[in-house]
Design a protein around this nucleic acid. Sequence first.
DNA 1: TTTGGTTAGTTGTATAAACAACTATATGAC
DNA 2: GTCATATAGTTGTTTATACAACTAACCAAA
Lengths: 146, 146
Amino acid sequence: MTNNQFKRGELYSFITGKASTAIARRLQKKFNSANLNLTIEQWSVLYHLWKQDGISQQELCNASYRDKPSITRLVDNLEKLQLVKRVSSESDRRMNLIYLTKQAHKLQEQTMELANETLNEALEGVSPDNIELCREVLQIVYDNLK
Amino acid sequence: MTNNQFKRGELYSFITGKASTAIARRLQKKFNSANLNLTIEQWSVLYHLWKQDGISQQELCNASYRDKPSITRLVDNLEKLQLVKRVSSESDRRMNLIYLTKQAHKLQEQTMELANETLNEALEGVSPDNIELCREVLQIVYDNLK
DNA sequence: TTTGGTTAGTTGTATAAACAACTATATGAC
DNA sequence: GTCATATAGTTGTTTATACAACTAACCAAA
């Protein structure tokens, strides 16, 4: 019984923590080695803005699965680093539209390359089919819980 | 090129964040609903102590993939909650051996049941074979990066 | 037994997440 | 138009993580 519980627990630990934190740490170390003064969380916000610039903080919340205070503070820090600018929306003055600076645009290519590099290292020895299957399982997990 | 980068990025987000944080959040909500005044991180430390009581903080670091300051503070908070006690080792006075309290032992069954419940909800609709395959992929990812 | 290096743990500081309480703006019913 | 309600964002507080610098204890070579 207890034994069985711990078997599930091992499964739990694989799904929740180990692999994902290992990837994040590896990428963070690559950023640090490249003297990019940027956290993975800040990068993940830039990532959404590279896809679509000038979206609101609320849209950043939805895209990055964070709550509003988290985005407020991430945008605060990104503004301090002069990587984004808050621009009050003309049509709805409650909204801040977040725009990338020139400096942030310059970061895209280098950081995405480091992210791809990290992913290649992480998935070495895993077949494309198994990568896709794993991705599908994780998507189902997310959909089951959201 | 940029397009290709973003395809990898999507894969990246699945592996790193969404599924695992969704599971952790769901379990935390179950703890809160049950009026268990306990964070997932605190629970994960108790989890290792349920397997083996009286291990050192360093062993907790290794088991839970955290650095020493993280464990120091988690043990601080668990001590405040009267769930563990630090006992200085007789054989090596540098070491603290961490022991569960009676109260912590009582939490095991209930919290493991909630964890199993969460895992069942998360993996609904995923075949055992695919669960195992996904677990193996995540193990390889971890081994590749550690 | 002294010295130098290693290991276990703590403390300081910065960043981030979760939750609650708050302000300001917009919107819809009347 | 006024008022209730909803939405966008901010602020305060607690907990957690990462990294660096630190103390205390151990250990081994001289």
